[in-house]
């Protein structure tokens, strides 16, 4: 990471710490904002947050790994999460999985070569009456069929 980038990241975190306070409890909102702005929380950002909140970097890392929506490593531009919970499973999730993997040429947990899409499983999205359900970034798609899923993926840039 370039020095200029590092400095601007530090400035950004300093503003966030100013905004949310130096308490331990400010950790989550700060992480969420960094995640929103940068799509991931780099190891440098984690250490800066730790320094400014006076906690240990490993504690920041521990929190990030606990939550699925916080990433310590960069992922694809779009994150596609398919519900793997029992109702969606009964409603034909496996067919959707096969179609998606065939279409993108990657498995769940992987990112496409062009960095366009990262595929992940999610636990219950709360759409059990309309499964199988899919989350593209923060938009929910329901009642998926293999065809519909492929159509949705192709519209993602």
């Amino acid at each position: 990471m370039l020095v200029v980038e590092k400095n601007s990241l530090t400035d950004e975190i300093e503003v966030l710490v100013e905004k949310y306070g130096k308490e331990r409890s400010s950790l989550l909102p700060i992480l969420q904002e960094i995640q929103r702005n940068h799509k991931y929380i780099s190891d440098f950002a984690q250490q800066e947050i730790a320094r400014l909140l006076d906690i240990h970097p490993v504690e920041v890392y521990s929190v990030i790994t606990f939550y699925s929506f916080l990433n310590a490593k960069p992922k694809g531009r779009n994150i596609v999460r398919l519900c793997r919970t029992i109702t969606c499973d009964l409603l034909g999730k496996e067919n959707v999985v096969a179609a998606i993997e065939r279409e993108l040429g990657i498995k769940f947990g992987e990112t496409t070569k062009d960095n366009r899409i990262t595929l992940e499983y999610a636990n219950c999205l709360g759409m059990c009456d309309q499964g199988p359900a899919l989350l593209v970034n923060d938009k929910v798609y329901t009642e998926l069929t293999p065809e519909k899923a492929v159509q949705i993926l192709n519209s993602v840039r």
């Binding site: 190891d43 984690q46 250490q47 240990h56 490993v58 890392y61 790994t65 606990f66």
Partner: peptide
């Protein structure tokens, strides 16, 4: 107060690990 080790991940995947 050295802070090398923490639990990472969640549920069945929890393990004790270091920073990154």
């Amino acid at each position: 107060e050295v802070g090398v080790l923490e639990a990472i991940n969640r549920g069945g995947e929890t393990m004790i690990s270091t920073f990154m």
